[in-house]
Simulated assay, not measured.
Amino acid sequence: MKTTYVAVGLTFSLGLILSACQTPQSRQAELAQICANPVNRATGSFYYGECQSLYPSTDRRLQRNYRLGAPTGN
């Protein structure tokens, strides 16, 4: 009887572990949905680094970000 409980527990645990795995395609789709919001692509956002892999900044955008973050000289 105890062996049955252990087997069921292991099977259940394995099912939970496998369901938590994310395929590259599902991760890419989820990231695309998150990065569709321009706020998440803004410099300093939590998703900025990951969104750069999908939507790399242009030279013009990088210059603008630099100017906005540059010290004012006061």
Score class of each variant (00 low, 15 high):
C51L: 12
Y66C: 05
A32T: 04
Y55M: 05
L62F: 05
L31C: 04
A32W: 02
P56A: 06
T58N: 04
G49W: 06
T43N: 04
Y66D: 10
N37F: 07
S53C: 00
F12G: 12
T72R: 11
V39Y: 05
A32D: 01
L18G: 02
L68M: 11
C35S: 06
I34N: 01
S57V: 05
V8R: 07
V8F: 14
Y55H: 14
G49P: 00
G73R: 01
Q52Y: 04
N37G: 02
Q52I: 09
R41Q: 10
S26Q: 12
Q52M: 14
P24V: 00
L68H: 13
T3S: 14
L31W: 03
L16Y: 09
F12W: 11
T4F: 14
L62S: 08
E30N: 02
G69W: 07
Q33S: 15
C35M: 01
L16Q: 09
E30W: 10
Q63I: 14
N40H: 11
G15S: 09
R64S: 02
P38E: 09
L14E: 02
V8D: 05
C21K: 08
F12H: 03
Q52V: 09
S26M: 02
G15F: 12
Q25N: 06
C51Q: 05
I34F: 04
L68T: 04
Q22L: 11
L10N: 03
A42H: 12
E50H: 05
L31Y: 04
Y5H: 13
Q25V: 10
A42L: 05
S26D: 12
T72Q: 11
T4S: 14
E30D: 12
A70L: 14
G69H: 07
Y5W: 09
R41P: 02
Y66W: 15
P24C: 03
C51H: 00
Y66S: 03
A20Q: 12
P24S: 11
T58A: 08
V39C: 04
A29Y: 03
M1D: 10
N40W: 07
Q33V: 01
Y5I: 14
I34S: 00
L18R: 06
V39F: 00
I34M: 05
A70Q: 11
Y55I: 03
P38D: 07
L14G: 08
L62N: 06
S19H: 10
L54Q: 02
M1Y: 12
R64Q: 10
M1L: 15
G73L: 13
C51S: 06
C21H: 04
A29W: 04
G15P: 00
A32S: 11
F46Q: 09
S19P: 02
S45V: 06
Y5L: 15
Q22H: 10
C51I: 01
A29N: 08
G69Q: 08
Q25A: 15
A32M: 08
K2P: 02
G69I: 04
N40S: 08
C35V: 01
K2G: 11
D59Y: 09
R27G: 05
I34C: 06
N65A: 12
P38A: 00
K2A: 15
N37D: 13
G44C: 03
G73W: 08
P24M: 03
A20H: 12
R67M: 13
L62H: 01
Q63A: 13
G69Y: 04
A20N: 10
